[in-house]
Each structure stands twice: as structure tokens, then as C-alpha cells.
Design a binder for these strands. Structure first.
Lengths: 141, 141
DNA sequence: ACGAATCTTTACGTCAACGTATAGTTTCCG
DNA sequence: CGGAAACTATACGTTGACGTAAAGATTCGT
């Protein structure tokens, strides 16, 4: 872990311990274009800044909580990056372009939100049935 | 689909259409001991009764909503069947045996419930962050 | 400065959860 | 009753998401 005045850099080991994945996972995600080390040491060792670590944490969240495949995650990230890039040029873009960016952003986020809500609803149904059965059994003792 | 006075039997095609899985999945789940056709036609074609279809629907629920592997699902089902079998002999069993059955049931169901709650909480956190970002973007238009 | 720990690239291995192909059989429908 | 559609068993293939091994290079602690 390299801490300078304006940034902190994490080694592979740091990230592994921080996020509970293996080094192989870092390499694999890099292979398939999900993450890229923000820099390397002079000897070639990978270094990750906070942004990359955050991105990886986000990837793991979507993967574990929503059950997205890495391919689906890549689509989501790509869309978000497109929107981010567009947002950078937001000020200098025309009214129509701005509207387009905003609408696309909203659509993407709404889609994901829909998946989350759908999943939560299904979980809630399972939960309901389970709690019911649990109460019935508990009343036996 | 064979409907008699006291039961309804489903063919492979029926189940496939009803639950949105492929025939291969039915065969595979049978291979790994998750389900068994309740009977066969004279020619050897599989027939499933409502119980098996319900069980399969339950399997798919756990799989898709909780992200359990088939192995984990088999453990859950096996535990539940053990408890069911015990529950059959509930009346004729001793006080200690009954208590054991009840406690084991409660533990299993509580574990699953914990997984559900955990997952829902994580989803809720994701949801919160997403809604926040969505509101910020929406305020732009 | 040196040994242990960590890292690199490359490449083959693995495992779950099915997909797909084949060849023959059974069931359904006009 | 005859052909299309669905089914059977068997078996090899595929895909995603990593695991594991090897051989050498780099970094870190004392």
C-alpha cells in the first residue's frame, strides 16, 4: 500500500485482502476487460487506485447480489462509462445531446432498479412463505 | 397432460412450457437426484404429478432468487425431507425426539431466512444508492 | 544484501450446469 | 393408420469463471 499526499495505491495483496477475492480473479477480470490497474511499479507489479478498487467492489456487488454474469456486468459498465464520458462534455454539448444523455442514463438506471425490485419482491414472497412455516413449527414447542 | 378424477399428470413438454426450462434440465436434475418422475407411461415416457412440479418450481426459485447451487439445494431438500419423514412419525415419537425434530426444523428454516434477509439487505443498499443517483440525474431534465 | 514473500506471464486443468447430436421408440392427430 | 412430433437413453461437447502449476522476476523486512 503506497500512500502519497494525494492518492493511495493498492497492491494485488491489498485488494485481495480488502475485497476477499483471489489474485486470479483480478487477473481474469483484467483479461476480460472489466478492470485495469491504474499503474504498475517499475518492475511491473500491478497497482490499483481507489477508483479501480471501488469499481471492483461494485462489480462484485452486482455479481453476488443480482447474479449478473460478467458479460452482463460489462454491458452495464460500458453503458455507464459511455454516459460518464458524455457527461464530461455535458456543458459543451447541445441541448438535444444533453437531453439524450439524461434520458439514456435514466433508462439504464431504471432497468437495473427494476431488476432489483423484481428480485426483492421474489425474495419477499419466499420470505413470507418461510416465516409462515416457521411460525407454525415454532408453535409446536 | 393427463387429468384423472384425483390427479393431474404432466408430460415433459407440459413441464417445460409451464416452468420455462428445457427437457435437458429435467433429465439433468433427475440425474443428480433432485427430482424423479412420479410415474412413466407404458412406453417409458416420464410423467410428473403436481407434487414434483411444485418441487421443481421451488428448486428454480431458490436457485434463481438466492443463487444457491444445485448441491446446496440438494442439502436443503434433503434436510427438509428428513424433517418431513420425522414429522410423519411425530405423534408416535417420544418427547425428546419431537423436541429434536422441532429444533432442527427451526434451525434449518432460520438459516435460510437469514440468507434471504441478508440478500434483501444488500439489495436494499444497492437500491438506495441507485435511487439517489437516479434522482440526481432526473433533476437535470 | 539476501532470503522470504509476493508478483509476473503463460498455459493447461476443473467443475457445474447444462447443450447438442444420434439413433431408435412412443404418442398424438387428421 | 400413417407420418409428424415428442420422447427415450447414451454420450460427447461447451461455456463461464475461475484454479493450479511452473519458472522466473520483484519487493520487502531485517
Amino acid at each position: 500500500m503506497i500512500i502519497t499526499d494525494d492518492s493511495t495505491l493498492f497492491s494485488v495483496e491489498d485488494v485481495v485482502k480488502k475485497l476477499g477475492v483471489t489474485a486470479r480473479t483480478l487477473h481474469y477480470y483484467e483479461e476480460v476487460g472489466l478492470i485495469t490497474p491504474s499503474s504498475r511499479t517499475s518492475g511491473g507489479h500491478r497497482l490499483y487506485d481507489k477508483d479501480v478498487v471501488d469499481k471492483l467492489a461494485y462489480i462484485l456487488k452486482i455479481k453476488d447480489n443480482l447474479g449478473y454474469s460478467l458479460q452482463e456486468i460489462r454491458n452495464v459498465l460500458q453503458a455507464q462509462e459511455t454516459l460518464d464520458r458524455l457527461r464530461v462534455s455535458y456543458q459543451t454539448s447541445s441541448k438535444e445531446e444533453r437531453q439524450y444523455i439524461v434520458e439514456e442514463s435514466i433508462e439504464l438506471m431504471t432497468t437495473i432498479l427494476g431488476h432489483i425490485d423484481d428480485k426483492m419482491q421474489r425474495l419477499n414472497e419466499m420470505r413470507k412463505g418461510l416465516v409462515e412455516r416457521l411460525e407454525r413449527v415454532k408453535s409446536l414447542r
